[in-house]
Amino acid sequence: MSAATSDAAALDQKSWHARNQIAVTPWLFLAPGVLFFLVYVIFPIFQSFNISLYEWDGLGQADYVGLRNYEDLYWEFVDRDAFYTALWNNLIWLVMYLLAIPAGLFIALFLNQNVWGIRLYKSLFFFPFVISQVVVGLVFTWFYDPTFGLLNTMLGWVGLGPVNVLGDERLVTYGIILAGLWPQTAYCMILYLTGLNAVDPEQVEAGRLDGARGWRMLWYVVIPQLRPATFIAFVVTIIGALRSFDLISIMTQGGPFGSSRVLAFYMFEVALSEYGFRMGYGAAIAVVLFLIMLCFIAYFLFSMWRQERGR
């Protein structure tokens, strides 16, 4: 009797399993990844929003202060000329970093040939992207060095005086961005090289027969076909620009006089450095940076959603 019921239960269980297998399996497969991602990425975003409403040194009691951290940022009560300089520099980063896209396209067009050894050339041009930004930062710090740097040595050849790029408040951000553009251009280049490979040769030939050459061919025939590559280049460049931290930390530590800070670095400086552990204030800066990024994320997701629907 009892054996029979357990058999029936097993059968029932099996059939339940068989019936619902397709509904249950995806959740089992998703569970570990989603759990990890929620704990380490999604929840912390909301926690940061919450922390930004407190004054907290990371150890002791956290005091609820409402929106005061944001007011301090807005009026720059705590650090004079820090927040808006960082915000402005972020904007410069965003705009200047996008130069990596045309520059990458230019190099890709230059290298899209079939001469001997071109594959090696392509890999070597891509090289800067593989190197860590820390090393890129060091390399460019020495490149800019006013006493022995390669830049000033080369300027000396044509009779131009030494420029202390990283010591000059007006130049420093552009100098760091240039260092960042080096690997980023390489990235965009490789995207476009792949894209150019897939450009329809018949359309190019048809364009040639219609008398399209050079610029007109590039603009009206080739670039429209490179759209997917351009979209990815745009996404990774925007993300890269707003994540700029490594180079600033290595090359200038935000200096001189905080003139090369961006929000990402300023936040780190406030929350985790010898200037004190102002976690709430740092979280408020992070929230501002996040909201800027959110505009782009929304746009990226919207584009992807449109593609998904089109499928």
Binding site: Y40, V41, P44, S48, L289
Partner: peptide, 23 residues
């Protein structure tokens, strides 16, 4: 769920920094 992964992948590290360090 897919978009959650994609969006999370794009967020600036700083928004995660304090909570992740705490955790």
């Amino acid at each position: 769920i897919f978009f959650m992964f994609v969006a999370g992948n794009f967020v600036p590290f700083q928004i995660l920094m304090v909570p992740v360090r705490d955790l």
